[in-house]
């Protein structure tokens, strides 16, 4: 494992694979920008969710992971959490919580799903619930820079070693941003293992649903997957 001093790498948007085919662990450092879209009812949430930039949807769908990386919150995204906590509407909260982000390929698709959930619920139940200004939903988005953590892995063994210790934000970056913000078909870990000829591991990494675990649980699960694969390959070689 090679380690070097971190360096600001603005606009670096790659999958974290350098020219030597090493996996470079990246992470993002960002400020939260407040946008002029607010909602005090489901109807207003529908309008704002339709107009807000996609990066804002990304922020609110993943904010909970940053807030508490060790814990899976009751509701996995800000929309569901707000519907439950502020509006007191458990039904729509559950529907929003059940957004299937691993199966939906893009933020525009997710926006459509959110809109359908809200529109159907409004049709069934109306828009009677309103919250005060202090509880309104305020749309935000991240703005910042992507960094190298200074940690790289040349081999799957090194990868496992770094994965255990790397900042949790780096795992977030490589798991959640590739598909929804960078247009990739799968997460960076899956892409790297595929390039290294680990087809079945790559498939498992692509298929697992990281939205059902806390970030730290995701780290543990990734480590389990990789170490099981390495162990099985070793057993085959030894046999």
């Amino acid at each position: 494992m090679a380690t070097e001093k971190p360096e600001a790498a603005s606009m670096k948007q790659g999958p974290g694979i350098d020219s030597n085919e090493a996996f470079e662990f990246l992470r993002a450092s960002y400020l939260v920008q407040v946008l002029p879209f607010r909602a005090r009812s489901l109807g207003q949430l529908l309008t704002a969710a339709t107009l807000a930039p996609e990066t804002s949807l990304f922020y609110h769908l993943h904010h909970a992971f940053f807030r508490s990386p060790e814990r899976l919150p009751e509701y996995p995204n800000d929309f569901a959490s707000w519907a439950h906590t502020s509006l007191g509407d458990a039904v729509v909260a559950e529907r929003l919580a059940n957004l299937n982000l691993t199966r939906t390929a893009s933020l525009s698709g997710i926006r459509r799903e959110i809109s359908v959930i809200l529109a159907e619920h409004l049709q069934d139940s109306g828009d009677g619930r309103h919250v005060g200004k202090e509880n309104e939903f305020i749309f935000c988005r991240p703005c910042g820079l992507v960094f190298s953590t200074g940690k790289r892995a040349q081999t799957p063994g090194e990868f496992l070693e770094v994965l255990q210790k790397v900042e949790i934000d780096s795992i977030f970056y490589h798991l959640f941003t590739p598909r929804l913000l960078r247009g990739a078909s799968r997460n960076d870990f899956s892409t790297w293992f595929e390039r290294r000829g680990f087809g079945s591991l790559s498939q498992r990494l692509a298929e697992f649903d990281p939205y059902l675990n806390s970030l730290e649980d995701n780290r543990r699960y990734l480590m389990e997957l990789v170490s099981a694969e390495l162990k099985s390959r070793k057993e085959v070689r030894d046999a």
């Binding site: 920008q33 910042g144 992507v146 960078r182």
Partner: peptide, 17 residues
């Protein structure tokens, strides 16, 4: 980060990804 954002002249648009 604020300094970077202001000096890059792009506080109005996310420079993240």
């Amino acid at each position: 980060l604020v300094m970077h954002s202001v000096l890059r002249g792009c506080p109005e648009s996310p420079i993240w990804l």
